[in-house]
């Protein structure tokens, strides 16, 4: 339980980091600290607080928070290595560690190379993957996941739901990558009005920036349709399962907030708080969709992981594992793996 709590803290910290990163780009502060990993020649952690002025407040804070999240993920990977019996979850910890290190290097490179678009977009996109990894670990270490959500009967293996939920998550991620491209190519106001484009349904004129911006708007529509299809399916077929309808409801709420923030970003000429909230809410939409997707596949995870590892104590806390052999009455889904 402590491990799960810690994983949740890491995931929340990662969301805060994404918001801080959004503030850096929204205020145009990405190059306010020209050097890396030092800050104006100081060691990052000894940079005087009184010198954190102007854009440095955003960029240096982002670096400090990133260092903190990096440390938290290192500890998480170690904790998982020591205490987590499931190979998949341990591996997620290692991948998260590798991803956050890569993310830090990308962040440094993008500063030293004057924010080249591909590196900055990769930095923004990888941030979302790091967040997804921390969310996945938090979910998979949760008591509900470990129990297999059996309190409302056996978890259904609903293939259509799994497919549409997975497609929704993939589309949300793609939409975020397009959004990152829009941000880093300065196309956020390429279409200055909303909901129309230059007063029309379709832009009367096209260039690269307008195309990226318009793709992001179309993407929002597509994501919304898929999210409605997913949640509609859940509400119709699985309304008795809180582990499915709760993230579904949250997904719809977050999506509504996100679209509103997107519109406000344009209408306020990219006001930096609104713009940054749009970034972190996008990450929250992705995380919620991912949680829903993973939960729809909970039964598959049992089978797949168990068959590879042949671990009869799959999903059990270490203290239970250490207590001895598991009896046939054990409610854990891993019993299936032994049968």
């Amino acid at each position: 339980m402590l491990l799960h709590l810690y994983a949740v803290i890491v995931a929340v910290a990662t969301a805060v980091l994404i918001f801080a990163g959004g503030l850096v780009t929204s205020t145009g502060s990405g190059l306010s600290v020209p050097d890396w990993p030092t800050t104006y020649g100081w060691n990052m952690f000894t940079f005087p607080l009184e010198k954190m002025v102007g854009g440095i407040r955003f960029e240096h804070s982002h670096r400090l928070i990133a260092s903190g999240v990096g440390f938290l993920i290192v500890m998480l990977a170690i904790w998982l290595r020591l205490a987590e019996p499931r190979r998949l979850v341990r591996r997620l910890g290692y991948i998260a560690l590798a991803a956050v290190i890569t993310q830090g290097i990308l962040g440094g490179i993008t500063v030293l190379w004057f924010l080249p678009d591909p590196i900055s977009i990769a930095h923004a996109s990888l941030a979302q993957l790091v967040f997804c990894l921390t969310i996945s670990i938090a979910l998979m270490t949760s008591p509900g996941w470990k129990r297999g959500y059996v309190s409302h009967g056996a978890m259904p293996d609903d293939r259509p739901l799994q497919a549409v939920a997975l497609a929704t998550t993939a589309l949300v991620y793609l939409q975020i990558v397009v959004g990152a491209t829009m941000r880093h190519t300065d196309a956020g106001l390429a279409i200055p009005d909303f909901p129309l484009a230059f007063g029309q349904l379709l832009p009367p004129t096209w260039d690269g920036k307008i195309a990226v911006h318009f793709a992001h708007r179309v993407g929002a529509l597509v994501v919304t349709l898929f999210a409605i299809a997913t949640t509609g399916h859940v509400f119709y077929h699985h309304r008795s399962r809180p582990e499915l309808w709760r993230p579904s409801a949250l997904l719809l709420v977050l999506l509504a907030v996100q679209i509103t923030l997107g519109a406000l970003t344009v209408l306020t000429q990219r006001q930096f708080i609104v713009n940054s909230l749009h970034v972190v809410t996008g990450a929250s939409v992705l995380a919620t969709s991912l949680v829903l997707t993973l939960r729809t596949r909970r039964a598959r995870f049992d089978t797949n992981a168990g068959s590879k590892e042949q671990d009869p104590a799959y999903g059990l806390p270490m203290d239970v594992r250490r207590a001895g052999p598991i009896g046939p009455a054990d409610p854990i889904g891993s019993v299936r793996g032994r049968a």
Binding site: L31, V33, P34, Y40, G41, W42, K51, V53, G54, I56
Partner: peptide, 19 residues
């Protein structure tokens, strides 16, 4: 502190901090 950030098209871009 200031950073001086030049954004040329044909010359070399530079960004220097002056703390």
């Amino acid at each position: 502190l200031h950073n001086i950030h030049a954004l040329p098209m044909n010359n070399r871009e530079f960004n220097r901090g002056q703390a």
